[in-house]
Nucleic acid binder design. Sequence first.
DNA 1: TACAATTGTCATCAC
DNA 2: TCGTGATGACAATTG
Length: 633
Amino acid sequence: MQVAKKYFTEGLIQLTILLSLVGVRVDIDSYLTGYYPPLTEINLGPSSAYIQTPFHVLRDTLDGYGVHPKCPELDYFFASRRLLDEVRNLGSPRFHTQLNAWLVHQVSSTGPSTSGNPDASVGLESTENEPADAGEHRPVRDQEVHCQSNSELGQGPCGAGAFLNEDEVKIKEEEEAVPLTHLAHSSTLEQESLFEGITTLPDPVLHHVPPAADIDWNNLLSVADLDDLDSLVTDRLSELDSDISSAISQDVSLHDAMVTSAGAFGATESRTVSQRERNLLRLESTNSSLSDSLPGMAVGLAALPFASVCNLTGNLTSQSALGSCLDEAVFEQINQLGLGLEAIDNQLNYLECLDSRAFEDLDSDSGLSLESSYGCPVSPGSSEMSSATSSYYEEEGGATGYSSEVDSKPPKGILDHRAMWPPVDLSESVWHDHSYSSPPLLSMPPLRLPCKTEEPEEDGRSQLEEQELSRDELRARAMCIPFSVLQIVNMPVEEFMEVLDSHSFSADQVTLLRDIRRRGKNKLAAQNCRKRKLDAITGLQEEVERLQAQRDRLLREKRLTAKTMGAVAHQFKQLTRDVLSRVRDASGRPLNPERFTLQCGANGRVVVQPIRQPAVATSAGKKTDKRKKEKKQ
DNA sequence: TACAATTGTCATCAC
DNA sequence: TCGTGATGACAATTG
C-alpha cells in the first residue's frame, strides 16, 4: 500500500509536470490550500459539545481533508495523501467531486485569426468577441476555463460556484449519468470533464486517437504494472508532442482564470449557450465527433495519466503489488458489492485501513458504531444535517457517535444503502477527532437485518459481517429485530414507541430494543461528557496559564514600582540635605538634616519642619499598643 | 508485563 | 411516570 500511495503521489506530480510541459497549467496550490474551505467548527469551546456539534463530519480525515483540532500542523503532511484520495474518491460515484476547478486553455488551430487579438492568449481577459451582454455566456472562444463545483458544496476557489447557473447545474445533473466505468477510471480532471459536458479540453489525444479509440482507452486501462505508467506517459507525450504545442500554448493561472471566468460566466447562462459553447469548444479539426460518441475520451490529455493511474490502482490491488494483502474475503466483498471497479477502489481504502490496523479492530467492543455511517461517505456532514428531512436528526441535532475506522466500514447487510447517502464534503472532515455525532438516517428505510435463524449465510461472509457488527447489532440480528442500531438509537421517541407498538415484538425484543437505545444514547452522552470534560480541563488550563502570566506581570510591576520609589526616596533625601544645608537658622547656622526635614504642602509650598523625637514616637507607639491589648482583653 | 489512554457500559441523579 | 442528558465509576481494550 505504501508503494501504491507513493506511486500515486509521484504520478500526480508527474502529471502536473506533464501538463505544464504541454502548456496546461494547474495550480496545485489551489487544491491543497485554498481549495478546501477552512474549518470553522473544530472546537468551539466547552459549549460545543452541549450543542452537539456535528463533529462527525470532521472524522476520517486521515487524508488531510481537514485539520485535526489536535494536530493542526499536520495538515500539510497529508497533502499528498489528500491528492491521492481526491483521485480515488472520484472513482466512486457516491463521492461527488467536492469542488474542482481547472483551467484548460487552448489556442485555436486556426491561429490568431480566431480572436484577432494577440492579447487574446491571455484567455478570458480578452473581450473582443464578447457579446454586449456581460451576463451572456462567452461566445466562441479558443480558450476555456472550467470551474466545476459540486452542486451540493458550492464552495471553493471558484467562489462558491458563483458563475454556475441553474442551467449548468441541470446539465451537470444530467451528465452525471456518465457510465460508472468512466467514472471509476476518471481522475479529478477527467471526471470534471465528463461532468462538464465533455468539452472541457481540446483533447490533443483526439487528434491521434483512431476511430477505434475505445480500444486505445481499454489499452490504457489495461496497464497492469506501475512500471508501465512511465512508458505510457512517455508514449503519450511523444504522440501528443506534435499537436499539443499548437493546440495548447497558453499558460493561464487557474486562479486568474477563475476570477475572470466568474465575471464572464454570468448568471444568465442558458443551456443553449452552454451547448453552443460545448460545440465550439470542441476540437474543430479532427475527431470532433468522437468526443460525442466517447465521452470518456474527450476528457483530454490529463485524463490519460489519471486514467492509467486509476486503473493501476485496481490492478495493483488485484495483481502484484497488493496481491498478498487481498484475501478471498476481500474479493468476496467485491463480488457482494457488485460495484466493479468502485468496489476495488473501496477495497483499497479498506486495505489501507486494514494495513494500519492489521485486521484487529474488526469488532468494536460495544460497537454500537453510531457513527459508522453505513457506507455513507465518511460521516454525515453538516449539510446533510441541515437538509435533513428525517426526524431522526431533527431530534438529535447532531447527536454524536464515535466509531473506529473499521466501524465506518459499512456492514455488508446494509451496503445497499450507500447509494442513498448524499455526497459529503470531505473538506470538512477531520481525521479522527473525538467529537461525536450521529450518523444520518435520512431517508433510510427500515433496515431489516437478516435473521440468523431465517437466512443461513455463507460462512466467510457471515464471519466477516459478524466481525464488523457490534454486539448490539448481533443481538438485534439474533432476535430478528428489523432495525439497525443506528435507527433504534436515533429515531425519535415517538417513532420508537410506535415501532414498539406496531411490530408486536416479544418482551425480550422490546427489552433489547430499549437496551440498545439506552446504551446508544448513553454512549453518545458519555462521549459528549468526556469531550466536555476535556474542554473544561483545557479551558481551566488556559485560565491557569493566563492567571499565572497576570501574576508574573503584576509581580514585575510591583518590583519595578518599589525600585522606582526607592530611587525617588533617595533623591528626595539628597534634595532635603541640599536644601537644609542652604537654610540658616536665627543664629545663622545651617539646619541639621538629622533634626529637620522638608514638608511639601498641598498648596505647593515647602516648609521646614522639625523631625519628631524618637522617644516621643516610641512612647506614643507603646500607648497605642497598650490600648490594642486592652481592647483584645 | 505494567501502565496510561480510550471507550463502552452501568448506575444514578436531575430535568 | 417516563425519556433523556449528564456524570462518576468500573471494566475491557489498545498501544
